[in-house]
């Protein structure tokens, strides 16, 4: 199905808003589950939006900007996943794989801006010395406009202008290649989870990881809620134990100090 000019513009406007949101991390409408759903509504295909959102969100579960790293852009991934699934009628899992190059393109543009914006710092330092608050307003406003425009243009070109070549490209792909992308859509969440493990996993936490894995593998339930509850139970036990230990430690220190001074007498 084709994307009309009006739909293209609406998508680009949403892309600009979600893009700025991915910069500020304020409302989280940039996350794939939301950006897919809204794209689905704009394209008159809400079901594809929902299904794609479910898959794309998991792909990005660990691809976060925690610790100042910049992942492939989730807003662009969300929008393009639904656009590709809608225009070429490939499955949402395949579409996630095909949307990643667009999300990475946006990632590199943003990284470039982060370097570029550094060039404004000496000017802002001077403005700070002169208590020139207007210059700060102008710079912040400028950064919003630059981000919004970039997302608008990137989404307009990728979703609207490139839809015909995109469709013929997908049509020209052999089945094994399309299936390969579909498989990748199912495996990609592992990259994100591995990134989370890299930050979180310590040897003494391995039992909790295995516990969650076993719970989900053997308890038949539609989502990860049982594991989350069990995780919360263990987190609480650990929290109270630590608090208790902290108190005991404080008491021991106190006794030691007092004991020490008494011995001194």
């Amino acid at each position: 199905m084709q994307i009309t000019l009006l739909q293209g513009i609406l998508l680009s406007v949403f892309g600009a808003i979600a893009g700025v949101d991915s910069y500020t991390e304020a409302l989280y409408i940039f996350r794939p589950i939301i950006s897919c759903a809204i794209t689905g509504v704009i394209l008159g295909d809400p079901m594809t939006g929902l299904l794609a959102g479910g898959i794309a969100e998991l792909t990005f579960a660990g691809l976060t900007n925690a610790g100042g790293t910049q992942p492939p852009n989730p807003a662009v991934c969300g929008i393009m996943t639904v656009v590709i699934a809608h225009t070429t009628s490939v499955s949402p899992a395949t579409a996630v794989g095909l949307s990643l190059p667009f999300a990475m393109l946006m990632q590199y543009i943003i990284l470039m801006y982060y370097s570029l914006f550094s060039g404004f710092m000496p000017g802002l330092d001077k403005a700070a010395e002169n208590a020139d608050t207007k210059k700060f307003n102008r710079f912040i406003g400028f950064s919003v406009v630059v981000m919004a425009l970039t997302f608008f243009v990137v989404i307009f070109l990728s979703a609207y202008a490139a839809q015909a070549p995109m469709a013929s490209l997908v049509k020209a792909m052999p089945t094994w290649l399309i299936h390969g992308f579909e498989l990748a859509g199912g495996v990609l969440p592992a990259v994100g989870f591995a990134m989370l493990l890299k930050v979180l996993l310590r040897v003494n936490y391995v039992p909790y990881l295995l516990l969650g894995f076993v719970v989900a593998s053997f308890i038949n339930y539609s989502n990860v809620l049982p594991a989350a509850v069990i995780g919360a139970v263990f987190a609480m036990i650990d929290f109270f134990n630590n608090k208790q230990n902290q108190k005991l430690q404080a008491q021991i220190d106190e006794v030691r100090e007092n004991g020490g001074s008494e011995d001194g007498i």
């Binding site: 199912g186 989870f193 493990l197 996993l201 909790y208 969650g212 076993v214 263990f234 987190a235 650990d238």
Partner: peptide
């Protein structure tokens, strides 16, 4: 520490539920 415990339990569950191989 507590958040890590809870997070890792959930990540274990997510690996089992959502990585398809």
């Amino acid at each position: 520490k507590s958040a890590s415990i809870m997070g890792l339990t959930v990540i274990g569950a997510l690996i089992s539920s959502y990585v398809t191989l």
